[in-house]
């Protein structure tokens, strides 16, 4: 497994450096890096440190969050179709953000929107823990997640429905498409602790998720504390995904496709898939964020739109391949 870890790390590092070198301000890659590290006078250090570095950092953090939480949810539910949005946290975080835009709070301070989104994510988690209970099975968790997602989506539509003018509505719609443009280090510092805590929590689940390969009964008989694993999973996923949605909006398909792509390369073991999907997700979001800046630089192509456009056909291809393997 060492070569895979090296390959994915090298890929993510290369894309991180590439992300730092792409942008409307034409700064050479080496000049940019030296300005980033050494500082100095002129606009280059400012562009590098205040615009490109947060964007690249957020790409890594959000990609890793979506990848790890997607892999963890698929492992727990033993279903390759699970994705981080399944437990309703993305939907409720988006609702919080939409409310902040609608009420005009988002225009007052930069932090209002992500904080409102985090509050939304927090209420979503509380609701899912109440609904799914401490001992419920995986089906209860899925159903509770679907119910919360549906409720959040309905309320988001209601806010759009009631929006006072088309500009407010279009601002909400564009925000929901997901983007890393114009984010600052403030966003990085807001998301980093949550994502770090969530990531550490989810990475400790590896052995339990491996044991779940044999089913809940056998895993529990091998000493797995199922209720604790589920609580850790829900809280960890909520912290990572809630923070990701709060700073970047909804970025779909990464948490679904990346674990799918990497599963054969890690021998299908859920524990190894966790970190592999973290690295793979970081690489995928960085690549997509570079692409939105290169494909249509003047039209502000949204990151979430691109990941869906690339992710959906990729997923179709995977389904096609799976179908071939079954017959």
């Amino acid at each position: 497994m060492k070569p895979l870890a090296l390959c994915l790390s090298a890929l993510a590092t290369a894309l991180f450096l590439a992300s730092l070198s792409v942008g409307p301000a034409h700064i050479g890659a080496l000049d940019g890096l030296s300005a980033l590290i050494l500082g100095g006078d002129g606009p280059e250090p400012l562009v590098m440190r205040e615009i490109r570095l947060p964007r690249a950092l957020l790409g890594v953090m959000i990609g890793a969050s979506l990848g790890i939480s997607g892999a963890a949810l698929q492992g727990y539910l033993r279903n390759p179709l699970a994705e981080p949005g399944l437990i309703g946290v993305s939907g409720s975080a988006a609702l919080g953000a939409v409310l902040a835009i609608h009420t005009g709070l988002a225009a007052v301070t930069t932090l209002a929107l992500p904080v409102a989104a985090l509050a939304g994510a927090g209420s979503g988690v509380l609701l899912i823990l109440l609904l799914a209970g401490p001992r419920g099975g995986s089906i209860t968790l899925i159903l509770a997640g679907i119910a919360i997602s549906a409720l959040a989506a309905a309320l988001t539509s209601l806010v759009l429905n009631l929006s006072p003018n088309p500009y407010a509505a279009s601002e909400i719609v564009f925000w929901m498409m997901g983007s890393l443009a114009d984010r600052s280090m403030t966003h990085v510092w807001l998301a980093a602790p949550l994502m770090l805590a969530g990531g550490v929590a989810l990475l400790t689940l590896g052995r339990g998720l491996d044991a779940l390969t044999l089913g809940e009964d056998a895993a529990e008989a091998m000493g797995l504390r199922l209720a604790r694993l589920r609580l850790t999973l829900v809280l960890g996923t909520a912290a990572m995904v809630g923070a990701a949605v709060a700073v970047a909006g909804a970025i779909g398909f990464v948490g679904l496709v990346v674990p799918h792509l990497l599963r054969p390369l890690v021998g299908a073991r859920p524990s190894r898939l966790l970190w592999a999907s973290g690295l793979g997700g970081a690489a995928m979001v960085l690549a997509a964020d570079i692409a939105v800046r290169l494909v249509l630089p003047e039209r502000d192509l949204k990151l979430g739109v691109l990941t869906a456009i690339v992710g959906a056909p990729l997923f179709l291809h995977l389904i096609y391949k799976t179908r071939g393997g079954q017959t």
């Binding site: 033993r78 779940l212 390969t213 044999l214 089913g215 009964d217 056998a218 599963r263 054969p264 021998g267 299908a268 073991r269 859920p270």
Partner: peptide
């Protein structure tokens, strides 16, 4: 139930 969830 002979559960083997993943192709390990």
């Amino acid at each position: 139930a002979r559960d083997i969830a993943w192709p390990v």
